[in-house]
């Protein structure tokens, strides 16, 4: 990297948004490295489940849990009695659902739900935040007051109300959550844009006749992404927890056998009380592990984007 004349000492530090550097810094911290690996594992499971479910031993419909009403009572994990028998690794839950298969299916549903909500909120938030900060004046006022309004809506109440009036499906729930989730991103992006806007390379682009659209999306947006990425990784975990929570308290989607971790946990809650611990522990651990690793990853990302680390 050393040029013919050598380069200036200060510029020896790597670029803030260099992907490689971020990755390296991320792996330097054991917590975030583990988080990253676990998240990748979950995503891999979800992708395989979608593309080639046979690989995971799933031969039935991936969108519903296979029930068995002939043996509805939970059966403990098979290896508890005979260690070499792994036919039912997590046991079953009511009504005769193979818990392992159900959890694998629900990982995909939960992940895609949270990705959809976060992506929707993120895109709306980024665009509105960008326009708000870039054009300022009345547009800024308008959008910021709008975010205030949406911030003040309790999303739980809104979600239940929407479920009551519009029907309880995952899609409606997602739309409702997007509606209350974009203001976070709008604020983050607006704050970043306000500072990047003042950089002289933006002014230089303006003075050389580059149009506003290009300035906004090619010059400003890429330089505001670091905090957004951190926010996304935290929000993905929050979304999964939120869906599980809604399902747990009984806001179940219309499809009663939709594979979903919160639902599994809620069913297991009743059976765990009478000694069938596996019905609660395995779905619960799956949620916990996912949320924890995503938060670890988010923490790691936040540190990795910190310019002070890049000396």
């Amino acid at each position: 990297m050393v040029g013919a004349n050598g380069w200036y000492l200060k510029s020896g530090s790597p670029r803030l948004n260099n992907f490689k550097t971020t990755f390296k810094l991320l792996l330097r911290n054991p917590g975030s490295a583990i988080g990253l690996i676990v998240v990748i594992l979950y995503v891999a499971v979800a992708v395989i489940d979608q593309v080639y479910p046979r690989l995971l031993g799933i031969t039935t419909d991936i969108n519903t849990m296979t029930t068995n009403f002939t043996h509805p009572v939970p059966v403990p994990p098979s290896w508890l009695h005979n260690f070499s028998n792994w036919s039912l690794p997590f046991g079953t839950t009511f009504p005769g659902i193979d818990l392992f298969q159900a959890i694998i299916k629900s990982i995909r549903i939960d992940l895609s739900f949270s990705v959809a909500v976060v992506a929707g909120g993120c895109i709306i938030g980024i665009i509105l935040g960008l326009y708000s900060a870039f054009f300022g004046k009345w547009l800024d006022q308008l959008i910021m007051r709008l975010t205030d309004i949406f911030f003040s809506i309790p999303f739980l109440v809104l979600a239940i109300a929407a479920g009551f009036f519009l029907g309880r499906s995952l899609e409606i729930l997602a739309i409702v959550l997007i509606l209350v989730w974009w203001p976070t991103y709008a604020r983050v992006v607006r704050g970043q844009t306000l500072s990047v806007k003042e950089m002289s390379y933006v002014e230089a682009a303006k003075s050389s006749g580059v149009n506003n659209f290009r300035i906004m999306f090619k010059h400003i947006l890429p330089n505001t992404m670091a905090p957004v990425i951190v926010q996304v990784s935290f929000d993905l975990a929050t979304m999964i927890l939120l869906l599980a929570m809604l399902d747990f308290i009984g806001f179940t989607p219309a499809n009663a056998y939709l594979p979903e971790l919160g639902y599994l946990a809620s069913v297991g809650y009743g059976y765990a009380a009478i000694g069938d611990w596996w019905t609660l522990v395995f779905p619960g651990l799956t949620i916990l592990l996912l949320a924890l690793s995503m938060n670890l990853l988010g923490d790691g990302l936040r540190d990795a984007f910190d310019p002070r680390l890049r000396r």
Binding site: R15, N17, M199, S200, Y201, A204, S207, S208, P222, N223
Partner: peptide, 14 residues
């Protein structure tokens, strides 16, 4: 055209 004072912020880092 204009040339700015601070050469560190006048070029887009990306």
């Amino acid at each position: 055209q204009i040339v700015f004072q601070d050469p560190y912020s006048s070029l887009d880092p990306r």
